[in-house]
């Protein structure tokens, strides 16, 4: 009678090292791709296709959740990898692989368009007579309603692009 195999004492179904690494790499790729695709696709002076743009916006909407999940899973896999090996370069590799997905989870929570064009911190107005910062020949975008009138100097809006404002009690958004 052959001897009984010794029962394993640790972990019920331990992952093989290859499977562990494959899962780790795939998690990182997914976490990075969901933020890299919309970021690289939605860029100024580039052409966007309607369908691809829809996907990019879908990816951007899902990115905060997906990248967070990917970062958590990747972190667990990194810890497992580090615990299972004694080779320092494999441990360093696990940390290096974890870095981009953590960065992605952070970036998914940023609005990098507002890094380029900071929103105006406070929307305030001055009387037309006191607006010495506008030249007579400068163009303004003007709205009027129920006796109220607001002018948005184009040179200011060309930077901020957006002003969330109120005209005669009605919420409006001025865009350029």
């Amino acid at each position: 009678m052959p001897p009984m195999p010794t029962p394993r004492t640790h972990g019920p179904t331990p992952l093989r090292p290859f499977a562990l690494w494959a899962l780790f790499v795939l998690t990182v790729i997914a976490g990075v791709a969901i933020i890299a695709f919309p970021t690289l696709y939605i860029m100024p002076f580039k052409t966007q296709d309607t369908r691809l743009l829809g996907w990019a916006l879908m990816a951007r909407t899902a990115a905060p959740t997906v990248t967070l999940l990917a970062a958590v899973v990747a972190a667990i896999l990194a810890v497992l990898t580090i615990l299972r090996t004694r080779r320092w370069w494999l441990r360093a590799g696990a940390l290096l692989l974890l870095a981009p997905v953590v960065l992605g989870a952070w970036f998914a929570r940023q609005n990098h368009f507002e890094w380029m064009f900071a929103p105006q911190t406070t929307i305030a107005h001055v009387d037309a007579a006191k607006a010495t910062f506008v030249e007579p020949d400068d163009l303004v975008m003007a709205v009027a309603r129920q006796g109220a009138a607001i002018a948005y100097p184009i040179r200011q809006l060309a930077y901020h692009h957006i002003a969330n404002d109120t005209l005669a009690g009605h919420p409006i958004v001025a865009t350029y």
């Binding site: 900071a118 020949d137 975008m141 709205v143 002018a151 948005y152 901020h160």
Partner: peptide, 27 residues
């Protein structure tokens, strides 16, 4: 919202009591 794109001088003539969006000092 109906809007107008005109020079500041023209707008000011028509809307002397109008309001102008302030500059963001930092920018």
């Amino acid at each position: 919202v109906p809007h107008d794109q005109v020079t500041f001088a023209t707008w000011k003539d028509e809307q002397p009591k109008g309001q102008v969006l302030k500059l963001d000092e930092q920018i």
